[in-house]
Design a protein around this nucleic acid. Structure first.
Length: 129
DNA sequence: ATTCTGACA
DNA sequence: TGTCAGAA
């Protein structure tokens, strides 16, 4: 499931093809780049090369614009998404909190004692275990 | 032939 | 955003 992502991010399309696929003018496509949205790769000859993901991004921008959202608004949308993703990344690399440790220890104890997660009280009343 | 950057009659 | 110029 990762080979597919690689292909989608492969920049192999020249701006001419992108124009036909998105029905956007070269002027618009380059302008969106100036605004920091959809930054294509450059080949040996400084020509812009786009990936399928770039195409999707451009079509998405096109829809936002059609819905009356301006450049500033679109930038905000992507900035917010970037921030949320960044927080998820940070959460992944965070060490276990005290709460996490307590939960893990409790679950482990339940396993060793042979109790199920919902009969915590029966333990106290069941001396012969 | 295609694309790039810069500029605006 | 369109369009034209001069270069790659």
């Amino acid at each position: 499931m990762k080979e597919k992502e690689l292909r989608r991010s492969q920049a192999v399309l020249p701006i001419g093809t992108v124009m036909k696929l998105t029905n956007l003018s070269a002027r618009q496509i380059r302008y969106y780049e100036e605004q920091g949205l959809v930054i294509p790769e450059r080949n040996e000859g400084n020509r812009r090369m786009y990936s399928l993901n770039d195409i999707d991004k451009l079509l998405e921008i096109k829809d936002f614009l059609a819905d009356g959202i301006n450049m500033a608004g679109i930038k905000r949308i992507y900035e917010e998404q970037a921030q949320k993703e960044a927080q998820k990344q940070a959460q992944r690399s965070k060490p276990l909190t005290d709460e996490d440790v307590r939960r893990i220890l409790r679950d482990e104890f339940i396993n060793v004692s042979g109790l199920s997660k919902n009969d915590g009280f029966s333990f106290r009343n069941n001396r012969n275990l």
